[in-house]
């Protein structure tokens, strides 16, 4: 069982504002899904390595090279506020 407190904490971590009604519904649905995925406990995975990609991916290396980045400032920062060259956001740390 996932508790309402845990869901509240998750909402905070994920920066998603949830109403109390939604909180309750979310707890129920997450529970339903977690019950379903508990099926995996039937599988013995000792000595199995995790697979992180669609197949055994290997590192890809290339030379660092300079490319012309053909960017359109208006398209790239459509909602951003600027002060000179700097992106303007709300104060994060109090004075």
């Amino acid at each position: 069982m996932i508790s309402k407190e845990e869901v509240k904490h998750l909402a905070k971590l994920t920066q998603l504002e949830l109403s109390s009604e939604e909180l309750e519904k979310m707890a129920k649905e997450l529970d339903l899904i977690l019950n379903y995925v508990d099926k995996l406990n039937e599988v013995d995975v000792s000595d199995v390595l995790p697979l992180t990609g669609g197949h055994n991916l290997s590192n890809v290396f290339r030379e660092d090279d300079l490319l012309e980045f053909n960017f359109d400032r208006n398209l790239l920062f459509q909602k951003a506020e600027f002060e000179n060259r700097f992106l303007k956001v709300k104060r994060i740390i109090d004075k």
Binding site: V37, L40, V43, V45, V48, L49, P50, L51, T52, H55
Partner: peptide, 14 residues
């Protein structure tokens, strides 16, 4: 219990 386990089962499926 969840994420790492799932990645291991993912290998078995492949």
């Amino acid at each position: 219990a969840y994420y790492n386990k799932a990645q291991k089962v993912r290998r078995l499926i492949m």
